[in-house]
Design a protein around this nucleic acid. Sequence first.
DNA 1: CTCGCTTGATACCTATGCGGTATAGTCTGA
DNA 2: TCAGACTATACCGCATAGGTATCAAGCGAG
Lengths: 271, 271
Amino acid sequence: MDLRQLRYFVAVARERNFTRAAELLHIAQPPLSRQIQQLEEDIGVQLLVRTSRPLKLTDAGRYFYEQALQILGRVEQTKLATRRLGKSERSVLSIGFVSSTLYGGLPLVVRRLRQRYPELDVQLVELLSAQQTEALKNRRIDVGFGRIRVPDPAVERVIMREERLVLAIPGNHPLSEGEGPLPLDTLAQQNLIVYPKEPRPSFADSVLSLLADRGVRPAEVQEVRELQTALGLVAAEVGLCVVPASAQALRHDIHYRDIDDEDATSPLIMI
Amino acid sequence: MDLRQLRYFVAVARERNFTRAAELLHIAQPPLSRQIQQLEEDIGVQLLVRTSRPLKLTDAGRYFYEQALQILGRVEQTKLATRRLGKSERSVLSIGFVSSTLYGGLPLVVRRLRQRYPELDVQLVELLSAQQTEALKNRRIDVGFGRIRVPDPAVERVIMREERLVLAIPGNHPLSEGEGPLPLDTLAQQNLIVYPKEPRPSFADSVLSLLADRGVRPAEVQEVRELQTALGLVAAEVGLCVVPASAQALRHDIHYRDIDDEDATSPLIMI
DNA sequence: CTCGCTTGATACCTATGCGGTATAGTCTGA
DNA sequence: TCAGACTATACCGCATAGGTATCAAGCGAG
């Protein structure tokens, strides 16, 4: 697949007519037909219904059209932004972060940075804690914010703060009735959802080892790839999930209760 | 610019070495060098610093690398999703919406739809009210949710509800002190921000004509392209802005107060 | 129903440009 | 300073995009 094919397809989808689309693209009609055929063959799906006039998009074609529009816009925007960046000799600060920091202090930090250094371009790259160490080493990022201690002598770590952990509970679960803090052993014999699945060690391991320390055995443990998915499963009543307090802002259709355990915290680590 | 060039650049950026990258791409090294040169020439900016070994990315190159990764991922994902859609013969419901409905009832509607019809693929397309009429006619969308009455005999309109309007006020503005409803003439001699700039008629016209009806003359009126920008300017203390009540969820760093006027409402229209 | 017009597909040719090979030039580290 | 690793340049062959001519299939007017 090729950007050219996307451009061609967008023109045809917009004009609903190969001949007019070809004129707009400043090419002859037969090459256009062929490129669209190749695109359909590559995807393995018919995008256009040619047996009617004006021609129609299939459902797949309609979806592909919307996506193609956005991809092309994104490419163009990237080109312009990169050019601007290169020409202006502005500095770029590249910040790696794990998703949960998006709902904590990171947006404020970024806003303040931009306010204080308007000439600085701040770029945000979502990376898991373990990936940040490597990204830092090869200068993909300049600084990272994670939740897991990944020991590496080449990397300096600063603990910004310890954040309380809370329990995410489906709306109609018995535990969602009360409001006060819950002891950790509430989780015994409950279905638990943890994240991320990989790479290890991860926030999932922190939670599981905290439970193991306290001798608490959940009924079933399901691993998912990320925080958003975990909370989605909680909302779908699959089980409970332990998350940093700041993640409460993410969804309001589930209940959260504090955890009554001194060690139920998660560090926010700058590397 | 070309997807191939993005793939090549990603390989070089990752390997920090043309020769190894070329091996991974299963091509010889000279063509790779040339493609990267052409890419740099096309963008007009140097992406790599070749005078050091291992080679380094410029700031622009670092930015372009992150963007290229995301674009390539998006393209691949689109291809798979389109294929799945075409193969499975699933139905797609394409919903057009104006951004303000994202903070009102639309997410709930979509969630219910997905719950009730799991076999249905719901696609969301952001379009201004005026664009929705056209999108509906050529089947780009199946249904639209907007805020402006665009009279067109070919299109059926259903008013879902009338939503109250509220006034968005910067945090340190004198009006942000109180909490109760404000009369419309509070806006007299105040700087006002309205959106969207085009196409007309838009929500901006609804607000402006409401003010004109009441004989209220703002000091200065600034038009911006969209709701998010408008609220951004409010936060930056450029002026006040009238928004639907549901948009209050968007930003918490500014104040909102009800408007004490029976007609200070905005319809939510399904077309 | 038919004729003519519009429009997309097919066949074949041309030419742009991608990738390959050979080689020169340059930087790094011992 | 020299060997080795690495990128740029020059040039060639071929794959493929685009062009031209033409066919086939719908659609509308009469």
